[in-house]
Design a protein around this nucleic acid. Structure first.
Length: 801
DNA sequence: CAGTGAGCGAGCTTCCGCTTGACTT
């Protein structure tokens, strides 16, 4: 048998950014074209201090990114073998720069290089692009260089200021610092919010001879309870007559198809996914060919998509539901290099490998299909009901759907639940008709502050401000949390009384009811360090913290892209005053610790103050010179800014001695993992339903005995050869414990029969680095991720078998 | 896993935006 092993000389090499895209396009282009991917940017500024030669016109020093050397080598080889290289990176600022870097690094020549662009992955779009090549747009590349260099200058000059003036390892940047600022300011708004209340009157009427309720509301609200009660009193003596009926047709329009930002918001509202989860699932759907590219700021749909959706709508719902159209992007900062996020094949109502993917796919399918469906036709009815003795009019609203249109498949979610429920159906009514009053209610309503941000609503806000890009929303959210500036948290809320009054059968009953206020779930809260850093940056670098800073520099980037100014000039204009501020701050600013005087300790008469210490926020009794000064850490969820004297004093009540149990001291305290009981050398967490300040000996013994029991069940194996070696039962199954370090057992390990040598083999194969800090260790720790990845991959490979 | 809180002062940290695969039989 003979195999044709002649090397294929490619005529054309096409380079795109994403490998999934490369696969699709290769199919469209046929055998004369080899399509490869650059996997995004291939070069970046060097890591260290010599990345930008500031004195020499900000000359950038680019190096091929370490994880791209292989890709670059392969592309270089293919480029050499090709007659023509087509640079097909995205049509936006970053994409243009990717093409330029490829041109430079691959050593391409102008005569056999062409730059092409397309916004959608369809055969006609690609063929059209091939017919209309152009040259690399150097002005657009320069705009990207300016963007890149500005971000590096800001990030790498501001961060060291924070290391010196606040705390080591902190970071600041054009995007992240503003994101934190939004959260800090929202938190202050919430904490300083003065809730005011008013009284809302609602009623339930019935038609004479019917018992179907008609809900109505008094359009105005009363400031005082007395006014509300007066109204109820008058109503109790009133007739209720329909004074006016207004029927109006109305329409509802579908929302535009998804962009990255709106997908993240809707997946958060409807499916409860954090933004990173949404992106991971979308990536999988994209790689499997189910959806178009998931990082986009455009609501545009290709002609192929519009006709595909129309065909599916006609087939599944009928032609009266079809209303093909395109949407225009409102966001000024959008670069629109891609289509909106949509299913690749509209005939697939469902797709995805696992349940979470399926749910996300279905959301995308519904949203995209709905965007191509007819408006919903409604009929809104507003009925005015005269309350005779009060000389006031109550209002009932009804809505009927004459034609459901897009509502058949999809309705966009809301960030905040409205107080008013959706208007329901009203029975046929006529002017002058009398109604019976079933009941009337007055309720005290409190105003609410602006809601704290969720991950998704923060993305929405950032997008509105033009800060960040679709590819960075999710990473930014996780960066600010990783740096400890922000935490995603829940709050239980506090009970609050409100007044109600019920008028029924001519009688008014007044009652005080209780509601829970301030409940939060998965909301973003600033930490004390986040607040401190924000205040510091605001004071010294107000320009960069300004919400319109990005929008302003974007204008200048656009001018560079249009060839109106040179990028070095623009950067110079920015850098001179900025760097002056950096120097000034380094020279003059005090080191900040977030100090705040909270009050006086009633026992000792000494001052109680709070600040950020080496290990986080703390309170202290006595000033720094005091020899008997005492310290206590703040608890999770507390903040320096809002801590009361009472809360501070509570912190000093711990550790608290409860008593003795079997000759060993029992104390209660709060540690890194919450409240715990210490018994001898043993620690046991206090369950959530028990208060650490009130827990007694009986509770403590119960907790201790439970812990002893679970400890006894924890030990699976021990080894006579080494008393430091044990196999234990943990939350995720058996694991090896050796000299204070834990090691993973391979999934297929025979736990009951492993020999000492076998276990030690596993231990040494997962060697742990020392946790001490130092220069020597730092060098070692560079090796660590590799070793870790190795062990991980091994375990993965094994578990597959 | 369950402390500590100052100061030795080496060597480290850090940005935003584009994209996924992860060491070797």
């Amino acid at each position: 048998m003979q195999i044709d092993s002649k090397p294929i000389m490619t005529k054309n090499l096409v380079i795109v950014e994403s490998p999934a895209k490369a696969k699709t396009i290769e199919k469209f282009l046929g055998k004369d074209y080899t399509v490869r991917s650059s996997f995004g940017h291939i070069r970046d500024l060097d890591k260290g201090d010599n990345a930008i030669d500031i004195a020499n016109g900000f000359k950038p020093n680019y190096i091929v990114s370490p994880d791209k050397t292989k890709v670059v080598a392969e592309l270089k080889k293919l480029a050499k073998e090709s007659e023509m290289v087509w640079l097909a990176s995205d049509e936006d600022r970053e994409g243009e720069a990717i093409s330029w870097h490829l041109f430079e690094v691959l050593g391409l020549k102008e005569e056999n290089t062409k730059r092409i662009v397309f916004h959608e992955i369809t055969k006609p779009a690609i063929e059209n692009a091939i017919k209309n090549p152009r040259k690399i747009d150097k002005a657009l590349v320069d705009a990207q260089q300016a963007r890149r260099i500005l971000d590096r200058l800001v990030g790498f000059e501001l961060s060291p200021v924070l290391w010196k003036k606040v705390k080591p390892s902190l970071s600041a940047g054009r995007v992240q610092s503003v994101a934190v600022r939004l959260i800090v300011e929202r938190e202050r708004e919430v904490n300083q919010f003065n809730s005011v209340s008013d009284y809302r009157i609602t009623a339930e009427f019935t038609k004479i001879g019917s018992n179907k309720p008609i809900k109505a509301e008094l359009p105005q609200r009363y400031k005082t309870e007395q006014e509300a009660l007066n109204f109820l009193k008058a109503a109790s003596e009133s007739n209720f007559t329909i004074s006016n009926i207004e029927v109006k047709p109305a329409q509802r329009k579908a929302a535009a198809p998804f962009t990255t930002s709106t997908l993240q918001q809707e997946a958060s509202r409807k499916l409860g996914y954090p933004v990173a989860k949404t992106m991971l699932l979308a990536q999988k759907l994209y790689e499997a060919g189910h959806i178009t590219y998931m990082r986009t700021d455009s609501v545009n749909l290709s002609q192929t998509a519009i006709s595909g959706a129309a065909a599916e709508i006609n087939r599944a719902y009928g032609s009266q539901y079809s209303a093909p159209r395109n949407y225009t992007t409102k966001n000024a900062s959008a670069q629109e290099a891609h289509e909106a996020i949509r299913p690749t094949y509209f005939e697939n109502h469902t797709a995805g490998a696992e349940p979470q993917e399926v749910r996300l796919y279905e959301l995308i399918w519904k949203r995209s299909i709905a965007s191509q469906m007819a408006n919903a036709e409604l009929e809104r009815t507003v009925v005015d009901i005269n309350v005779s003795k009060a000389n006031q009019t109550m209002r009932a609203e009804g809505e009927i759907i004459k034609f459901d249109g897009f509502l058949k498949v999809y309705l966009e979610g809301k960030d905040e639940e409205d107080e008013d429920e959706d208007a329901g159906l009203l029975p046929p009514l006529s002017q002058g008709e009398q109604l019976n009053l079933n009941q009337m209610v007055s309720e005290q309503k409190f105003s609410r502050p602006a809601p704290r941000y969720t991950e998704a609503s923060l993305v929405k806000k950032l997008e509105e401000l033009g800060i960040g890009r679709p590819s960075t929303y999710a990473p930014t959210i996780s960066t600010v949390q990783k740096r400890g500036y922000v935490i995603k948290d829940n709050r239980e809320g506090t009970p609050r009384n409100y007044q109600t009054a019920l008028l029924k059968n001519g009688e008014i009953k007044v009652k005080t009811a209780t509601e829970n206020t301030g409940v939060e779930k998965s909301k973003l809260f600033p930490t004390d360090i986040g607040t401190l850093v924000t205040d510091f940056l605001n004071e010294h670098f107000g320009d960069i913290m300004d919400y319109s800073f990005t929008a302003n520099v974007e204008k200048e980037f656009d001018e560079i892209a249009q060839g109106m100014i040179s990028w070095t000039k623009m950067i110079d204009g920015f850098y001179k005053p900025f760097h002056k501020d950096v120097d000034k701050t380094l020279a003059n600013a005090e080191r900040v610790k977030g100090e705040r005087i909270i009050g006086i300790d009633p026992e000792s008469g000494k001052q109680i103050s709070g600040r950020i210490g080496r290990y986080g926020p703390l309170v202290q009794i006595g000033d720094s010179e005091d020899e008997d000064k005492k310290f206590a850490s703040l608890r999770a969820g507390q903040s320096l800014e809002t801590l009361t004297l009472e809360q501070a004093l509570d912190l000093f009540k711990l550790p608290r001695t409860i008593g003795e149990y079997q000759n060993l001291k029992v104390t209660a305290a709060i540690g890194r993992f919450g409240p715990y009981i210490k018994y001898g050398t043993m620690f046991a967490s206090i369950p959530k339903d028990k208060d650490i300040f009130e827990i007694n000996m009986e509770d403590a013994v119960e907790i201790i005995e439970a812990k002893i029991k679970s400890e006894a069940e924890k030990l699976i194996r021990s080894f006579p050869e080494d008393e430091n070696l044990e196999i234990l039962k943990g939350r995720w199954g058996p694991y090896i414990a050796h000299k204070k370090n834990n090691y993973k057992l391979p999934k297929d390990a025979a736990v009951d029969t492993l020999t000492y040598a076998q276990v030690m083999e596993i231990v040494s194969s997962q060697a742990k680095p020392s946790d001490k800090k130092g220069s020597k260790i730092a060098a070692e720790s560079k090796v660590k991720p590799k070793a870790k990845a190795k062990a991980k991959a091994k375990a993965k490979a094994k578990s597959k078998k």
